[in-house]
Design a protein around this nucleic acid. Structure first.
Lengths: 198, 198, 198, 198
DNA sequence: CATGAATGAGTATTCATTCAT
DNA sequence: AATGAATGAATACTCATTCAT
């Protein structure tokens, strides 16, 4: 019965450690997240932590990967619920923003990560998210506007995705804004719609 | 006739220290910027540094203020050269982006600051920049489109300014992009123009 | 008219500086008393301070000397009011303790100094106080008990003076004592009376 | 069979660190006692020091606890050797003072601590010592004078213990006294005896 | 594999004193 | 004489990583 026990235990350990990283990061912020805290919360020794992850950065990298997967899953679920194909651009934008905003707000962790993107060990996760959204968007555009200039689209999506994410992140971290959320969302929706409308 | 010598020396010292802060920050990054390094580069003792600035944060704050002033000056110069009033929205956007891009590229420091905005001691500088641009923009809109919905404008400008700045910052910190600069700029210009066009 | 101006100004400055030292010491405690604070409060430059006092310690020394003079004056006044000669030992003790307690309580400064006696630049002030009290006491004993063994007296007074002062100082710096002040005072009075009674 | 090794090593380390603290404190004084010096003398890294003690104060607190234990042990041994019950008040006082004096003189450290009592992180050790002596004294009085007013006793003992300790501390830190030790001791003994004798 | 004790470079800030002006 | 700008050594505490057990 000792078939995949090591593999499984290993996988299990990795997950536990990433969970712990997420929790510590959300609770204490990137600056106060130490490998010792993570190991402690995970219920293992630091030594073990370093058996599964070569260094602190790789731990965070793993967390990022998982976060991106989660987000993708969330988008997929939501968009299919709304049967993407039948929505117009404005509604797609609105729903996407809603998902993003909801996710960022629900997980303080994600906000913390967004705010620290440039200090993160790797960009790839964010890149992946962009790639994913690019794919989704391309699909959508293929369905709705057969002949959309593709390079143009790539650049626009790059700009819009980053714009939306960072603006939301900044907005959420400002406590004292005079702008209401609906105003921000409306402005973002308008921005996305008007930028992409051929 | 030893007039203003102290005032001058004081001003001089303050400037020297801010310069040093800028250099150290650009060379070593916010995380590795220490007061000792700054003092050393400035050619003074740490003690002196603390005679002019109560703490590290205030040093960075001063630098931020200066950065905002610089940007404002750059904008003013450029926009007057082009006689703002006679430009259409697209060209205003293009010129603004050009200024921003140029400034960020010329001063690695500014990029570093943009990337660390959320860890900076004060938000006010970025807020100030927003305020300034809002004022300029309002003026422009007053001239060109008499009856522009003002709240709408405020939200849109908030979104656009943050979008543009952060997107540029992110773009500049990515070494391996497949997107060319002109594509990004074009996308940004389109975004701004289409979002603001009534 | 420029007769003694320098002498006077000098004296004046010295007094001002000692005053400032006293105030700063009382307000911030010995540990947080800096020469710069003293100079600032005195309204002069640090440089001037160092023209009148070679170092920080000598400033405190001067303050101590003055404190001892003050205490001596207070004792003299009080004891003469009560016409020392007619009091019995118990009342002398009670009055002395009352004076000491009152002085310590009225001047947080004195308490601070008592607590830090061993870190003070010189012992001499406390020694002087002892000498003074010894003289007074000897006088009293000469009047009341013609043939009191003198060496004995010296040692006893040394012990009693230190005992009383330090015990009061410790008592005053303890916030959470279960002993009432009258109990302490009574115990001290008993101690002094019983120790000295031939 | 690697039993208790960690426990032992841990205990060992704690002891070593307290020893080092004692030595550094005795040699350099409280003001110049730094965690780095302590760690260096203990032959470990500062990091290790902070693994066993949360901060500098707790290190000193531990040392105080140990000092109090030592003193209590010394008292117990001595008093039992002399079969406390059979001694009269004078001899109890004399022996107690002898123990205190011997301990203070043998450990320059204790003198340093006595002199700095008010700057110590905790009063509790000194309080504990008082409590202990109070207990011993009460026991003694119960045996010898059945009906001694207890509150009275508490105040008197508070006064006498502090008086004796501080007077001894002061005497020991004065190099240039004209009083011989026997004179001081005799005076203290008289003071204690006469104060407590019903 | 797991442990967790040990490492030690690194950092913001203070303050008595000096000395050029 | 007066100024006050400049000095710089000194100090408590953290944390990613290692490695002997």
């Amino acid at each position: 019965m000792r078939k995949v026990p090591k593999q499984q235990r290993s996988r299990q350990m990795v997950e536990t450690l990433i969970d712990a990283t997420a929790t510590v990061l959300a609770e204490r912020g990137l600056d106060n997240t130490t490998t010792n805290h993570i190991a402690e919360l995970a219920g293992v020794s630091v030594g073990s932590l370093y058996q599964y992850f070569p260094d602190k950065d790789s731990l965070i990298e793993a967390l990022l990967e998982r976060m991106v997967s989660d987000l993708q899953r969330a988008f997929n679920v939501q968009l299919q619920q709304h049967s993407l194909g039948e929505l117009d651009l404005e509604n797609v934008a609105r729903i996407s923003i809603s998902i993003g905003l909801g996710t960022l707000r629900a997980n303080p962790l994600y906000l913390e990560l967004m705010q620290n993107w440039h200090r993160l060990p790797v960009m790839t996760p964010l890149d992946k998210l962009e790639q994913y959204m690019l794919t989704v968007a391309r699909l959508y555009f293929l369905q709705h506007f057969q002949s959309y200039p593709i390079t143009d689209l790539q650049a626009k999506l790059y700009v819009l995705i980053n714009s939306t994410l960072f603006t939301l992140a900044r907005y959420l971290s400002q406590s004292n804004t005079m702008l209401k959320e609906t105003e921000i969302v409306d402005a973002l929706v308008t921005m996305i719609r008007n930028t992409l409308t051929p």
